[in-house]
Computed example of a mutant assay.
Amino acid sequence: MTLRSVDLRKEPVEAVLDRVERSLGVHLDHDTVVRKRRSVGARTDRSTWVRVERRGLDRIGAQGGDGTASAAALHGIAKPVWFAGVAWRDEAEPVMWLADETGLLPGTPVSSAVAAEDPQLSEEWWASLSASLDALAAQSTNRIATPDTETLTQELVTATIHSVFPGVDTAVTDWCPAHADLNWANVTSPVFCALDWEDWGMAPRGLDAASLWGASLAVPALADRVRSERRNDLESRDGKLMTLFVAAKILGPYAGPEDPRLVPARKTAEQVLQELQVS
């Protein structure tokens, strides 16, 4: 059976939310519902938050769909507390629904996924971001990261980079745990907290830093700050490959001609390509 392309901002989700309420024993505040393309979230009557995701079975992979629950074992990272979860297979489509109940966030998402203006974040915020990413990278897991729900393998790295930058030596040597969906909608302010841990797992060093950089390119000062804060990651060889990986996604066949990130992504990529040739 072919999986339909679904945007949960436009699909009826009442039956799904009803099932979540029964399974988790909560009442959702429907006035607080937030809809995204593949997830829906709402506040509960016990001052928690429930996020519900629709994911195709072909995107679940061998590690299963317990990203948020398994992230509860990670330490030293600013993230919501996980309380409970439920998952079930859709009766009509090759789809799994996953719902996780977590603590409320200490702030609000910084912006949409791609920043359009400088959020004016505090020094404490940047320090907490770096401390969390350093703590995450120092831990271990059998999970494999799934950015954009695709299992991150050497083959995927190579194919993505070569689609825009052919001929680059893409061999990754340093793999470590990453959030794998780090953008401005998945971090909060004024207090830093990283949310949406469904895709975390092993990834090339620098993936998270490069992802946040890519989401900042429309605001040059913000992109420069990300690169400055995560210099050690992004100046490593694997960090440079992840910069090309993210840039290739921005510059690839689905690039929007009006995307303000195109020019800075191309400029940085050309510089990184020169550095890789010299090293």
Rank of each mutant, 00 (worst) to 15 (best):
W197L: 11
V26T: 15
N186P: 12
D134H: 14
L262V: 08
Q274L: 09
T158K: 03
V52S: 07
L17E: 06
L222A: 14
L195P: 03
G206R: 05
R230Y: 11
L241W: 00
G76P: 10
D7F: 05
A115S: 03
G103E: 10
F83Y: 15
L129V: 12
T44C: 06
V263G: 12
G252E: 03
K36V: 03
L217E: 00
N183K: 05
T146M: 05
D259K: 15
D7A: 06
C176A: 15
T48S: 15
D45I: 00
S216W: 04
N186W: 03
W175H: 13
T243K: 00
L251G: 09
A127Q: 09
L217V: 04
A42M: 02
T243H: 00
D224T: 11
D169S: 08
L121C: 12
V187P: 04
A215H: 10
I77D: 01
G61Y: 05
L234P: 01
V34R: 07
D199S: 11
V219E: 10
R59D: 14
T149Y: 04
A73S: 09
L28I: 07
A223M: 06
H30I: 03
V278T: 15
A15R: 15
A215T: 02
L57F: 13
P260W: 06
P253K: 13
T158M: 11
K36P: 01
K36Q: 13
T48H: 12
E14R: 13
V114P: 00
A145D: 01
E275A: 12
E258W: 14
D58F: 14
L121E: 14
E229P: 01
T151L: 12
D233A: 15
S122M: 10
L276D: 02
P166H: 00
H75R: 14
A171K: 05
Q120T: 02
M202Y: 01
T158L: 07
S140K: 02
R55W: 11
G206T: 08
A127L: 09
D148L: 08
E93Y: 04
K36N: 12
Q63V: 04
L182M: 05
E93I: 05
A221Q: 13
N142F: 09
G252Y: 02
W175N: 04
N183E: 15
P119A: 13
D29T: 00
S70Q: 14
G201W: 07
V26Q: 08
R237L: 00
